[in-house]
C-alpha cells in the first residue's frame, strides 16, 4: 500500500532523511522508531504529501504522492505530531469539516462522525469547543479526524504522546484492531509500544534506516538475546565465573551481582542458542558443583538495548 523508494530530504546543507526505502502492506503495522530529530516526522510529512521530497518516490496505493497528490491523500488518514486542531470549533463541527473536505456529505457525514466519535470515545465532549478540551481528548479528536473516512492507510506521528497510561493502552489496542485491515505507520519513541502494537519496526537514525524487522527479530539482535541469567548460592563469584566460563557453548561470563551468599551471573552464548544447549550445560555445572540455583532465565533480548546500541554511538559522538 505504501512504497517508499530512496526517499531523501535536505533542508539546505542538512540532510534530514537520507535514502530511505521501505514498504508497508495491508495488515501491517509499522513502528517508526528513532531518537528525536532522526527524521521520523520529516519522512511522514513526505509520505502524506505535506512536504515534497528532494529525491526519491513515495507511492500510496500506486499513486505517486508528488504527481497525483489528491488521489494519494484521499487514501490516507494522517495524525500530525501534537495533533493540531482548529480551536474555535466544537469536536463535532471539526470532524464534520474534515469529513466534508474529504467529500463525505449529508447522511454519510453524520454516520462517519458518529463512527469516529464512538471509536475514539469522544461522546462526552461531542459538543464541546476544542480549546476547552484536555490534552487526551484533543489527541483523540485528532485521531478521530484521521479515521473519519475509514482510510486504507493511516499515518500517525506519535499517536500516544501526552496521553495517560490508560489512554495509551486504548490507543494501542485501537491501532492493533485497525491494523488487521489497514496499512499503518506510526512513529514513537516508546519502545514497549513497538512490542505491543507493531508487526514490524524500522529504526531510523540521522535520516538513515539502521534496522528493519519484526520486534522479535530486532530483539534477537540485542547483545542480551539468548544469554542466561543464573542466580546461585553456596559458592563464590570467582568460582562461578571460572566454571561457567569453561562451558564450551559460552563465549563470556559476567557477574551481574555478587552479594553473598547469592551470585548472579550472565552467560552469553557463542552462537544463537536455539536448542537451549547452553541452558542444559549450565544446569549440569550447577549440579556437579552443588550450587543452589534459585533462578535461571533465558533473556529474549530487549528493545531498548538494541535501540541504544544502534543509535547511541552517534549521540555520544556529538
Amino acid at each position: 500500500m505504501i512504497q517508499v523508494e530512496n526517499l531523501t530530504k535536505a533542508f539546505g546543507p542538512k540532510v534530514a532523511v537520507d535514502d530511505v526505502s521501505f514498504s508497508v502492506q495491508r495488515g501491517e503495522i509499522l513502528g517508526f522508531l528513532g531518537p528525536n530529530g532522526a527524521g521520523k516526522s520529516t519522512t511522514m510529512r513526505m509520505i502524506t504529501g505535506y512536504i515534497p521530497p528532494t529525491a526519491g518516490v513515495v507511492k500510496v496505493g500506486g499513486n505517486d504522492v508528488t504527481e497525483k497528490p489528491i488521489e494519494a491523500k484521499r487514501l490516507m488518514g494522517y495524525l500530525p505530531e501534537s495533533a493540531p486542531l482548529y480551536t474555535d470549533m466544537t469536536v463535532e463541527g471539526f470532524l464534520g469539516f474534515c469529513a466534508e473536505v474529504r467529500g463525505i456529505r449529508d447522511a454519510d457525514k453524520s454516520k462517519a462522525i458518529d463512527r469516529a466519535i464512538d471509536m475514539c470515545f469522544l461522546k462526552s465532549v461531542r459538543h464541546q469547543s476544542v480549546d476547552t478540551l484536555s490534552k487526551g481528548y484533543r489527541h483523540r479528536t485528532g485521531f478521530a479526524q484521521a479515521i473519519i473516512h475509514d482510510p486504507d492507510i493511516l499515518v500517525m506521528d506519535e499517536p500516544t504522546d501526552g496521553l495517560d497510561p490508560n489512554q495509551k493502552q486504548e490507543v494501542r489496542s485501537l491501532i492493533r484492531r485497525m491494523g488487521q485491515s489497514k496499512a499503518i505507520i506510526f512513529s514513537t519513541h516508546i519502545l514497549e509500544e513497538v512490542e505491543a502494537a507493531c508487526t514490524r519496526a524500522i529504526i531510523i537514525d540521522q535520516g538513515k534506516v539502521v534496522a528493519n524487522g519484526t520486534p522479535n527479530e530486532l530483539k534477537a539482535k540485542s547483545e542480551l538475546a539468548n544469554s542466561y541469567t543464573v542466580s546461585v548460592s553456596g559458592t563464590e563469584a570467582a568460582s562461578v565465573r571460572d566454571k561457567l566460563g569453561s562451558v564450551i557453548q559460552s563465549s563470556k561470563v559476567t557477574i551481574v551481582n555478587d552479594k553473598p551468599p547469592t551470585v548472579v551471573a550472565r552467560v552469553f552464548p557463542k552462537s544463537a542458542d536455539g536448542e537451549g544447549e547452553l541452558g542444559r550445560a549450565i544446569f549440569d555445572i550447577a549440579s556437579q558443583n552443588n550450587w543452589k540455583v534459585s533462578e535461571i532465565k533465558k533473556e529474549e533480548g530487549r528493545m531498548d538495548d538494541i535501540f541504544r546500541n544502534i543509535t547511541l554511538p552517534d549521540t555520544q559522538a556529538q
Binding site: 504529501g49 505535506y50 489528491i70 484521499r74 494522517y78 482548529y86 473536505v101 474529504r102 467529500g103
Partner: peptide, 13 residues
C-alpha cells in the same frame, strides 16, 4: 496552530 499541516494533507488543492 499547526493546522496547516492538517489542511494541506487533505485531498484538496
Amino acid at each position: 496552530l499547526g493546522t496547516m499541516e492538517l489542511l494541506l494533507t487533505m485531498p484538496i488543492s
